[in-house]
Amino acid sequence: MKAIDIIRNEHRALAAVLRALEATIADLRDGRRPPDFRLLAAMIDYIVRVPEEVHHPKEDGVFFPHIRAACPDAVPIIDELEHQHHRGREHVLQLAMSLIHFQAVGAAAQESFCAAAERYVAFSWTHIEMEERQLLPLLSDRLAPAAWAEIDAAFAANADPWRGTADEFERLFSRITALVPAPLGLGDRRSGLASRIT
């Protein structure tokens, strides 16, 4: 698989978990279901750690430097994306703390958790959309085949990075899919979400 395929695959997987988290938050707010902390923790673990440990390091270390060198008109986009990578770490801490607080004190902390999760989800959508709609289409004609070959080789050397160490993230994704109630996931619909596909 080529680097650009891997980046898009990671975006798709993240998008699927973000959609499921949005629906979970909506159901919590509407009181349709009690919080399932195993599921919330698994989803937040995924949407935080996959970008921070797998996706962004590849972009910052391999992808973006090549684009800076070869594609000057993409530099403002790269600057903004790198800035977002940096800012994302602040959101992560806020989100993690709000989940711990929610689990510790219960309903009184639900709204602050939902708000933190929504901010992180909105931030993630903005970031993914910028890469998908502004950066990637710009590159297809601009980067020389030699630059793509170097990027592909660097990504290939990273094995199948979106599976993480010992397939950890793949197993985490499967666990999320198993826990999210049908029809969004494979979990028991009685304890899970209402039918909501937006």
Partner: peptide
């Protein structure tokens, strides 16, 4: 199928 399941099946 919903996006989560689609991704799981693709893998």
């Amino acid at each position: 199928l919903a996006p989560l399941i689609v991704q799981e099946l693709f893998r």
